[in-house]
Amino acid sequence: MVRIPLGPEELSRGLRLGELLRSTRGHRTMSDVATEAGISVETLRKIESGRIPTPAFFTVAALCRTLDLSLDDVAEATARKPDRADAS
């Protein structure tokens, strides 16, 4: 199976997801959050850095549960931000 490369929008959305998770994690260590979510620290590190811009739904759901985020919060934070040209 050949995977189609992600476009700029998907990559940008992955960066926004990583920023949200990092800021929500706050003072908690990556290790604590990853363990509680049932994922590896390396997976969390890659998601937070945008190196995994499209993590599996169940991974996102587990992180949301661990960080007390709703999926609606994630959807809103990762939605496409209108460009200034779009807003006029």
Rank of each mutant, 00 (worst) to 15 (best):
M1P: 09
M1C: 13
P5F: 01
P5W: 02
P5K: 03
P5T: 09
P5Q: 02
L6C: 02
L6M: 15
L6S: 11
G7Y: 04
G7Q: 05
G7V: 08
E9V: 15
R13H: 04
R13C: 03
G14T: 06
G14W: 03
G14K: 11
R16M: 04
G18E: 08
E19Y: 10
L21R: 00
L21T: 04
R22H: 09
R25L: 06
R25Y: 09
G26K: 10
R28G: 01
T29I: 06
M30P: 00
M30Y: 06
S31G: 12
S31P: 06
D32F: 12
V33D: 00
G38N: 08
E42V: 14
T43N: 13
K46V: 06
K46W: 08
I47R: 09
E48S: 07
E48T: 10
G50D: 12
P53K: 04
T54C: 14
A56S: 10
F58R: 04
T59L: 06
V60F: 02
V60L: 07
A61T: 11
A62V: 07
A62C: 07
L63V: 02
C64N: 06
C64S: 13
R65G: 12
R65H: 15
L67D: 01
D68R: 15
D68S: 15
D68W: 07
L69M: 04
L69S: 02
S70G: 13
S70E: 06
L71T: 15
L71V: 05
D72N: 13
D72H: 07
D72K: 01
D72W: 03
D73W: 01
D73Q: 14
V74S: 02
V74N: 08
A75Y: 03
E76H: 12
A77Y: 07
T78F: 04
T78Q: 03
P82L: 10
D83C: 09
D83I: 08
A85T: 07
A85M: 08
D86Y: 12
D86E: 15
A87P: 06
S88L: 13
